[in-house]
Simulated assay, not measured.
Amino acid sequence: MTRRKVVVAGGVAVAAVGVGGAAAVNAFAGEATAGTTTTASGAETCYTLTSETTEGPYYIDADKIRQDITEDQEGIPLTLTLKVIDAETCKPVRNAAVDVWHCSALGVYSGYEAMSNGGGGGGPSGGPTDVPTGTPTGEPPSGPPPGGGGGHAEPTDDKRYLRGTWKTDRHGHVTFRTVFPGWYQGRCVHIHVKVHVDGTWTDAGYEGGHTCHTGQLFFSEKSVLASAEVAPYSTSTVTRTTLDEDTIYPGNGHEGGLLYLAYDKRHIARGVHGRLTMGVAPDETHDSTDTGPSPSATSS
C-alpha cells in the first residue's frame, strides 16, 4: 500500500459549494434506477461497477482540499455532484477522498501549461505558427494525447486551478464547483476523477489508504455544442473531438461516466448542473491505467 497525503493550502479548507447562478432545468437525460444484476458467477450485486479508465499524464497528487476549484478561471459555471456507493451492497461510501481535475475552457491543464495544446490563446510557446489547411495526410503526432493514455508527466508549473479534493458525506455525496471544461486536440470534453478509501482525514489533509476507482466523466454532444457558442469556448481554434470519436470514452453511456446534465437550453451561460452515481469496489485497487471491461454504473 502506498502512502498518499494531500496538503491543505494554508491548513484551511475552502468553504462549501454554493449554487451560484446556475439554472437547473431541462435535464437532457431521465432518471435511471439502480437495479439488481447477476454476475457471471451467479452472485447478485445491487449496482454495476463504474468503468475504469486511464488516469492520463496530468494527475497531480497532493492537491488542494477544497470544493470550489474554479480560482480565476473563466467559463460556464458547473456544479458537479457525485455519489459514491459500494457496487455490491449499494451502501454509500463515506469519508472517501474524491479527486477531480480537468482542463480550462480553452483546453489547458494547470501544472502543465507549457505542455497543453489548448486553443484560442495562440498555443504553447515553441509550437507552429502557421495555420494548416486541407486534410492532414501525414502520421499523427507521436506520444500520448494530453489527458489520455500514457505515463505520468512531471508538472511544469505550480498552478493548481481546476483541481481539488473533497470527502464524501454520510450519504456518499461530494459536490464541486468549477467551470464547464473545454476541449483540446485528440480528446472530447471530460473530467478526471479518483476515489480513495481506507485513509485517514487529518488537519493536514488525507493520508494513507488506496485508490479504488480511477475514471473520467463525460458530457453530451448537445451540451458541448451549446457551450461552444459562449465565450471563451467560442474563441477556441482547436478542432474538437466528439464523444463518439473519443478513444477513451467506453461508449456505454452513464455506465461509462456520461454525466446527467441540467441547464437552461436557451441560456447555458447561466450554469450547468452535472451528477452521477459511481459504483465502486472499495476493497479493490484501481489507481492508474487499468482499463479492463468493468462497465460502469447506471447512475443517478
Rank of each mutant, 00 (worst) to 15 (best):
R3H: 08
A9C: 07
V12F: 04
V14K: 11
V14F: 04
A16Y: 02
V19R: 09
G20W: 01
G30Q: 06
E31H: 07
T36K: 10
T37P: 07
T38W: 06
S41P: 03
Y47L: 07
T53A: 00
T53V: 05
T53L: 08
E55D: 04
Y58D: 13
I60Q: 15
D63F: 13
I65A: 11
Q67P: 04
D68P: 04
E71S: 14
Q73L: 15
I76A: 13
L78V: 05
L78H: 03
T79L: 14
L80H: 05
V84M: 06
V84A: 02
A87T: 07
A87Q: 10
T89D: 06
P92H: 07
P92N: 05
V93D: 02
V93G: 00
R94N: 08
A97V: 01
H102N: 08
H102F: 11
S104H: 12
S104W: 11
V108F: 12
E113N: 14
A114I: 10
G120H: 02
G121I: 09
G123Q: 09
S125F: 12
G126F: 05
G126S: 09
G127D: 13
T129H: 09
P132E: 02
T135R: 08
P136V: 03
P136G: 04
E139C: 03
P140G: 00
G143R: 03
P145M: 12
P145R: 12
G147W: 10
G148R: 08
G148H: 05
G150K: 10
G151M: 08
P155I: 15
T156F: 14
D157E: 15
D158T: 15
K159Y: 15
R160C: 13
L162H: 04
L162T: 01
G164L: 01
T168H: 01
R170T: 06
R177L: 04
W183N: 14
Q185T: 15
G186Q: 13
R187G: 12
R187W: 12
C188H: 13
C188M: 13
V189E: 12
I191V: 10
K194C: 02
V195T: 02
W201F: 03
T202Q: 00
D203I: 00
Y206D: 05
H210T: 09
Q216R: 09
S220P: 00
K222T: 10
K222L: 02
L225H: 11
V230I: 15
V238K: 14
T242R: 13
L243S: 03
D244A: 15
P250E: 06
G253P: 01
G253S: 04
Y260W: 03
A262R: 02
Y263Q: 07
Y263P: 05
Y263K: 06
K265W: 09
K265F: 08
R266Y: 06
H267G: 02
I268E: 06
A269S: 11
R270S: 12
R270Y: 05
V272N: 09
G274H: 04
G274W: 03
L276E: 06
L276A: 06
P282K: 04
P282F: 03
D283L: 09
T285A: 05
H286C: 06
D287F: 04
T289H: 07
T289N: 10
D290E: 09
G292A: 13
S296I: 13
S296M: 10
A297K: 07
T298F: 08
T298M: 07
S299W: 01
S300Q: 09
